[in-house]
């Protein structure tokens, strides 16, 4: 099967800065793909390479089997939802949405009809006559989405589309985007620095750092079996265990990771386990998160609500199932 987007040893350097450095990547057709990473990790540059706003310094990019190097943005069947939405302030909502069809020469009635349909799709029917400045952030976001979708792109690129929305709106938009993607069957490529967002929405996630992809996989895989210390640390606060520690419990001199919820905490300090002291407690509602100091090693454990929570400074014993100690690919 031809991948929707394929990078082969693709690099984008800005002078000495290697924004994207020899990245290999294949995004499958119809996939909801997230690019996750801290700011400056190269994820947005990757998105701009697909959109055509950047050209690779070396390597190649193909979109549905067609080479994309040197093809300008306006000749790619790819559309973008911008981080700041980039709605045209001088046009009303309907003309904003119809813009792509207008420059392609579609007649007024036809393009307005298509734009009206697209607005229905994002649940803003009847908003066509308003100016972008009269809309709320969430509504602008939907207009930006409709403006991209009306062109029936093969790939839809979303650059931190939920970044400017408040938490509640963000959650409902996540849900909606996911359903929209399923209904339309378009390949979505989504850039975010929010690991929760990436894990909850995407079919697959690529974790970026320093212009490279650290790991690509399904959310469960990234979460349960991080390949490196960076991934373990960035994607959801896994405990990173140094090789000496891992040697003692798993018999191998490798870096390891352990999820906070997989650590059991016992107040009775006799018997087997890792002795630790409670440094602080954070009540999270459904669980309580403990910061622990195990002989200099900082660990986190989450206790489901309802279990007894030890006091600050209390000495406790930590135990875990050895199968759940994940050995990372990264060499010690």
């Amino acid at each position: 099967m031809t991948p929707a987007v394929a990078f082969q040893k693709t690099s984008r350097h800005f002078g000495a800065v290697r924004a994207v450095d020899a990245v290999d990547l294949e995004i499958k057709p119809g996939e909801f793909f997230a690019m996750l990473g801290p700011s400056g990790s190269g994820k947005t540059t990757c998105l701009r390479l697909i959109a055509g706003f950047e050209q690779p310094t070396s390597g190649s990019i193909s979109i549905f089997g067609e080479r994309a190097e040197g093809v300008p943005p306006y000749r790619r069947n790819v559309n973008t939802v911008f981080q700041d939405y980039a709605l045209f302030p001088h046009l009303n909502v309907l003309d904003n949405v119809a813009y792509g069809l207008m420059v392609k020469g579609v007649g007024k009635d036809e393009r307005h009809r298509a734009a009206e349909d697209a607005l229905k799709l994002v649940q803003l029917p009847g908003y066509g006559g308003r100016k972008p400045s009269q809309l709320s952030g969430g509504q602008r976001q939907r207009v930006a989405l409709a403006r991209a979708l009306v062109n029936k792109p093969k790939v839809l690129l979303l650059d931190e589309p939920l970044g400017a929305l408040d938490l509640k709106l963000r959650e409902s938009m996540q849900e909606e985007l996911k359903q929209l993607q399923k209904a339309l069957g378009i390949t979505f490529v989504f850039v975010t620095h929010d690991q929760g967002e990436a894990l909850s929405m995407a079919d697959r996630v690529a974790v970026f750092n320093d212009g490279r992809i650290m790991q690509v996989g399904a959310p469960e895989e990234i979460y349960q079996r991080p390949a490196s210390r960076f991934v373990a640390d960035f994607v959801g606060s896994s405990n990173v265990l140094p090789p000496d520690f891992v040697q003692r419990y798993a018999g191998q001199h490798r870096w390891g990771s352990l999820r906070p919820e997989q650590i059991r905490v016992r107040s009775d300090t006799s018997g087997d386990g890792v002795a630790a002291r409670v440094v602080s407690r954070h009540y999270l509602g459904a669980a309580t998160k403990l910061s622990l100091d195990a002989n200099g090693l900082r660990l986190h454990a989450t206790l489901p609500s309802g279990t007894a929570v030890p006091e600050d400074g209390a000495h406790v014993m930590l135990t875990f199932n050895r199968d759940q100690l994940h050995l990372m690919e990264e060499q010690a």
Binding site: Y74, N79, T80, F82, A86, Y99, A148
Partner: peptide, 14 residues
């Protein structure tokens, strides 16, 4: 905003 120009190109305008 500079992204207006990019948005226009993205939507197919030369």
């Amino acid at each position: 905003s500079g992204s207006l120009i990019e948005a226009s190109m993205d939507l197919g305008a030369d």
